[in-house]
């Protein structure tokens, strides 16, 4: 007679331990997965909301309009000086591949949103005791080092311009939702960069001419190609529009839409 081997306690504890640990792992795995999904949705909603909220700087303008124009001109010159020497010595920059490397570089730097920066500025106290001041100053200077000069200038411009309403754009449902919103938002910055170069003599104005130019931008905002997809019928009008495009220093597209920008998804309408 075979003796039934009764399962020992050891056997049961071992097996139950394994089963329980598997269950716990499964439970944790599922909840972690849910959390990731929730965070994704939350971040998406947050980015959507931040792009659709209007930001008004509510203060009387400190600089007059002629001064703002001068500032924009000077800034353009400074930006130009930064970008131009890069273009010439490194012929590699003309190919879009180098652009991808550029993207990788920027991804390592933590990107600060405007709200975070404003929070930082508001955290700085004004006129506290000496001891506290020195501490806060250190903190402030550390914080400021992280902000690029470009971002600081942007904030300064916002304060100077005063009562400039920043358009909240998105909440478009079609064409791939989030990325279309970002592309639209980026595209709307382009007219401000082109407008100073877009000039016509009096005999071409009020003629209801219209042309459309498709632009291909690299990841750092350099114009790769431009083509007229809709001519106005007047060659001088078209040439002036092309000239304005070629003379413009375009802003760099955000990473998520750099592919679309390089693919020529942006079309500029002169005047619309």
């Amino acid at each position: 007679m075979k003796q039934l081997k009764l399962p020992t306690l050891k056997f049961y504890t071992g097996k139950s331990l394994i089963i329980h640990s598997v269950l716990v792992a499964l439970g944790m795995g599922i909840s972690a997965f849910q959390l990731i999904k929730l965070n994704k949705v939350k971040n998406y909603n947050l980015s959507l909301a931040s792009r659709s909220v209007k930001v008004d700087v509510v203060a009387m303008p400190k600089l007059s309009l002629p001064e703002l124009k001068e500032l924009a001109k000077v800034k353009g010159q400074i930006d130009g000086d930064i970008s131009e020497p890069k273009a010439d010595p490194a012929p590699k920059d003309t190919t879009p591949d180098t652009g991808k490397e550029f993207i990788k570089k920027t991804e390592t730097k933590p990107k600060k949103s405007l709200s975070d920066l404003l929070k930082q500025y508001s955290d700085k106290s004004v006129g506290t005791s000496k001891k506290k001041k020195s501490k806060k100053q250190l903190k402030g200077s550390n914080g400021q080092k992280e902000i690029s000069a470009k971002m600081r200038n942007k904030l300064k411009d916002l304060v100077y311009a005063g009562n400039k309403i920043n358009d909240g754009t998105s909440l478009y449902g079609d064409n791939g939702g989030e990325s279309a919103g970002i592309l639209q938002e980026f595209s709307e910055k382009i007219p401000d960069a082109i407008r100073p170069q877009w000039k016509l003599p009096s005999y071409l104005i009020d003629k209801d001419l219209r042309c459309r130019i498709r632009i291909y931008l690299s990841a750092n905002g350099k114009l790769l190609r431009s083509e007229i997809i809709e001519s106005s019928g007047d060659s001088e009008y078209d040439n002036r529009a092309l000239k304005a495009v070629k003379e413009t220093r375009f802003p760099a597209p955000p990473e998520t839409v750099s592919k679309q920008a390089a693919r020529g998804d942006i079309v500029l309408g002169f005047p619309l």
Partner: peptide, 17 residues
């Protein structure tokens, strides 16, 4: 498919002549 985004540059400034 081409999902082209069209942006209006607006009216041109009168050039100083």
């Amino acid at each position: 498919q081409d999902n082209l985004t069209v942006v209006a540059v607006g009216d041109a400034e009168l050039e100083q002549q």
